[in-house]
Simulated assay, not measured.
Amino acid sequence: MKNVIYILIQCTWGLPQTLLGFIVFLINIKNKHYFYHGAIITERNVPSSVSLGMFVFTTTNPMKDKRKKNKIPDEELSKRLLVHEYGHTIQSLIFGPLYLIVIGIPSTLWGFLPYFQNKRNNGVSYFSFFTEKLANYLGEKVTKEKSMENAII
């Protein structure tokens, strides 16, 4: 029943990002897919992950800075990234049609603008930004699994 309510809210209140997620899902239709707490997970061989409504696109090859001593083993890292991305789907439930403006755009800018990339190259965790910190918190709260904390990857 929880999954049905989750899907119903994502397809109504979270329609803009879910529609965009469905288009990306169709583009990646040949990839591996599975369900996780009501969300549709698609694995892709790209260096980053993204959540769009009830669609989560996870990387099979997480970006890792080779200069940093990452203490999280690859398999554990993938599980934690999934919890983090699932947290973004909960943000979609909360912010609805404002999700792309309040969460999506700031998160994308934080992830890809050179200025912020330079900050992260100097030891600032990607997961310290407000959108990412909230995604970690919500993902852990709902799934009862560990997320990324302030990992530097």
Rank of each mutant, 00 (worst) to 15 (best):
I9Y: 10
V102I: 15
S48H: 01
F22R: 06
E85V: 06
V102Q: 00
S49I: 01
I40V: 13
I7K: 08
P16F: 14
M54T: 08
Y137A: 13
L52A: 08
V24Q: 01
T58M: 15
M54W: 09
F22I: 05
Y99E: 14
E75H: 06
K71G: 11
P62Q: 06
T108K: 02
T89G: 06
K79P: 01
Y99R: 00
S147A: 15
N31T: 03
K2N: 11
P106A: 13
Y137R: 10
F22N: 05
M148C: 14
L26F: 11
I9D: 07
F35C: 04
V4T: 12
N118M: 14
E76Y: 05
N136R: 00
F25C: 12
L19H: 03
W110Y: 13
E43L: 13
H88R: 00
N3H: 13
T58V: 15
K2T: 08
K71Q: 11
G123Q: 07
F130Q: 04
I29H: 01
F55E: 09
R44W: 03
L77P: 00
V56P: 01
E43R: 00
S49L: 04
G53Y: 04
G21F: 14
V46G: 01
I94A: 01
K69Q: 14
L109H: 05
D65W: 10
I152W: 06
I29F: 12
L19F: 15
Y126H: 08
D74V: 11
I7W: 11
V50P: 01
S147Y: 07
S78W: 04
K30Q: 09
I7Q: 13
L82S: 02
T42M: 06
E132Q: 10
T42H: 02
F57A: 02
T131Y: 07
E145S: 10
M54N: 11
K64Y: 05
M1N: 09
E43H: 01
S125I: 11
H84T: 07
A135H: 10
K71C: 06
Y6W: 10
V124D: 12
E43T: 02
I5D: 03
L98C: 10
V46F: 06
K68H: 11
N118L: 14
P16L: 14
Y137V: 13
P97C: 09
T58R: 02
G111Q: 08
Y86M: 08
L81I: 15
I105S: 06
I90Q: 04
D74E: 14
G87L: 07
F116C: 00
K133N: 11
